[in-house]
């Protein structure tokens, strides 16, 4: 498994964590099923892409 895909996985988890934290700190409501799921899926995808980019940047010279 390459460094980029490792980091993409970490980024996806981090995206979900960030959404849950935003809800816990009172800035976002995840009460609705569809609305909450949409936020979560978007966060996971964006986190995965950003994590993958970071992993690629950090490992391209190795």
């Amino acid at each position: 498994m390459s460094g980029a895909s490792n980091a993409a996985g970490s980024g996806a988890v981090l995206g979900a964590v960030v959404i849950f934290l935003i809800q816990q700190f009172g800035f976002l409501s995840l009460s609705g099923f569809v609305g909450g799921l949409v936020y979560l899926v978007i966060a996971v995808i964006v986190g995965g892409i950003l994590g993958g980019l970071a992993g690629w940047a950090l490992t391209r010279n190795h």
Binding site: S10, A54, G55, L58
Partner: peptide
Amino acid sequence: ELWAIATVG
């Protein structure tokens, strides 16, 4: 997870 990304290299 942040640590995992930072140390991926």
